[in-house]
Design a binder for these strands. Structure first.
Lengths: 342, 342
DNA sequence: TTGTAGGCGTTATCAC
DNA sequence: GTGATAACGCCTACAA
């Protein structure tokens, strides 16, 4: 039983393998200029000693920490958790670890989180959206940390963007409703404070409707946090204030689910009386009655592509600085043509 | 414009503040034996130089890395993402960072992830469940890394457990059904391979039914991955094979949602024809028709308590080595009394 | 209360 | 190809 009190260090491996620490280091870092037999001896010694390299020491001495950070609003929302899943699993394949922080949709909190990540020595940081404090970006630049914006196509000067165009998505929603004959539309948006994605969807929707000659000066828009109950309450208010609406675009499936629920509770038929369009294409869309039409956000893919950008050698990075993913319109049962004569 | 090429080091702060590096270190580490005015000078200098301490160097020199790891099956399942949310946010309050890895429900993968985390120098690791490879635990012990099991009450020798009793929860489900008069029950379980939680729920359910004198030698149990579609398909098969069932216990709300959907598609009335009980109390439970009765898993709280354990000083740890949280039965519309004469 | 000096475990730069 | 040697940035006895 080898119950050594202290864990094996690189030097211990060197001693056991009968070579210098430098050589062990070379083997461990896949340096090709090492003889086959010595390499094998080292590997054998390392295994027998249960040697595990010490990351912090490596990070201190070398320039690379193999550490990446991500700051998202919250993990309690599938759209972000799924993105992180894609990001983490792909990074993991390349032996890169991910540190996660949540900002609760507050860009001041986000800045503090960036500082924490800088302190950890991360090489790159994944952020959500393109609205950030100047401080935040300054810090990233000063420490020469690569950064990627997600859920947006708005790439920063030095960093990259992997995502989709929220404004365009909003416009797509407007066109979809207009083509179905809807002329009195409303929207339940996410909280737009500090949130370019939520704001972009509103802007796009408004712009799209306007392009069809509709008066959007008084477009009914209610903001609500991403909770089913909030969607329910928002829909209630929206319909009370604007009883003649025939279509409502929601900034998230969660809100749309709540809105749909309100309709069934209040005897409104979806989509006959009112059409409801969601956003994200979360798993829950197929649980409502009727199932939700929605705009699909490629969260998993976004995470993977952000990882690809981060893992790419600097030379290649330029080619993928801006990656726009399509937002597919998925039509299910919650949307339909506007009732005639309305 | 102070565009220094290199970032400020602790020594730079010392120079600017007119003191020694040791003193700066003391200030930064809240050592009380430093004069007020010197402390302020140091803090001022640090701010002006945009000084950010270098975590890896700290971790190398001191014994604490302020780094914690968590390995969960997947982030694409709200029950884990939410736990991580609770864990991360509480750790973050104490300036501890969290590295996340996913095992995809494979305990061999988990072992590799533990190795990665050891390499990162984490001080503690949060794991899910109590089924782990001996290797995994050995490594943790050897490196003297604290560990916490979650979603279980089965505490290991040296680590802790924060969670709930899956067997007991299964028994609760059995009692609930039995009290409602159900005598022919079935179950749609999660995949039990490498998954003590899924297995525990099955065992508890079976044991509970047996305690009422029911013959459970042929208890219909189908295993399915946590997907709505899988729940749908599993329910289809379950009902085809056992047309007389009056109650089905599902190992997850996701499966229950799929099962409920199948019932509405196939003309079975829930709960009149058949009762369905879920597990987790995910947000989605209120979207099905009828809404799902379920057993509530306190995911967020579990994450927070795991963090509390990790953050507690070793002396206090013993008192919270095993923390059992209640699993509340939440009755909504998907369960009811067994139809008479069946 | 403050400064000096040594070293944490690893890798980069030299020689050989 | 391989081995000394010197850092990387910081903390902590110890001395003053």
């Amino acid at each position: 039983m080898n119950l050594s009190l202290r864990t094996a260090k690189l030097k211990d491996v060197a001693d056991k393998a009968g070579c210098s620490p430098a050589t062990v280091s070379r083997v461990l870092n896949d340096n090709p200029f090492v003889d086959m037999d010595i390499r094998e001896r080292v590997l054998k010694a390392a295994t027998e000693l249960n040697y595990v390299p010490h990351g912090p020491a490596r990070a201190l001495r070398s320039t690379s920490s193999r550490l990446v950070g991500a700051i998202i609003p919250t993990l309690s929302h599938a759209i972000y958790a799924t993105m992180i899943d894609g990001l983490q699993s792909r990074l993991s394949e390349s032996k890169v670890s991910l540190i996660i922080n949540t900002s609760l949709y507050d860009i001041a909190v986000e800045r503090e989180q960036v500082r924490v990540l800088v302190e950890r020595g991360v090489e790159s940081i994944v952020l959500v959206g393109h609205w950030h404090l100047p401080d935040t970006i300054d810090m990233l630049e000063r420490y020469n940390i690569g950064y990627v914006f997600t859920y947006t196509t708005n790439a920063p000067q030095k960093g990259a963007a992997v995502g989709f165009d929220n404004v365009k998505a909003g416009t797509t929603a407007a066109k979809f409703f207009h083509d179905l004959g809807h002329r009195r539309c409303g929207m339940i948006a996410g909280i737009t404070l500090d949130n370019d994605r939520a704001q972009g969807r509103v802007d796009g929707f408004r712009r799209g409707l306007a392009s069809y000659g509709l008066d959007v000066s008084e477009l009914p828009v209610i903001e609500a946090p991403y909770k089913i109950d909030s969607g329910f309450a928002a829909m209630k208010k929206l319909m009370e204030d604007n009883p003649t609406l025939t279509a409502v675009f929601c900034g998230s499936d969660i809100l749309a689910a709540g809105a749909t629920k309100f309709c069934s509770h209040s005897g409104r038929k979806v989509p006959d009386d009112i059409s409801i369009l969601g956003f994200d294409n979360l798993e829950m869309v197929e649980l409502t009655t009727p199932e939700l039409s929605t705009l699909e956000v490629p969260a998993l893919e976004m995470g993977r592509l952000a990882a690809d950008y981060i893992l790419a050698p600097p030379v290649q990075r330029k080619h993928i600085r801006q990656r726009e993913l399509p937002v597919r319109l998925i039509i299910r049962g919650s949307t339909g043509p506007a009732a005639r004569g309305t």
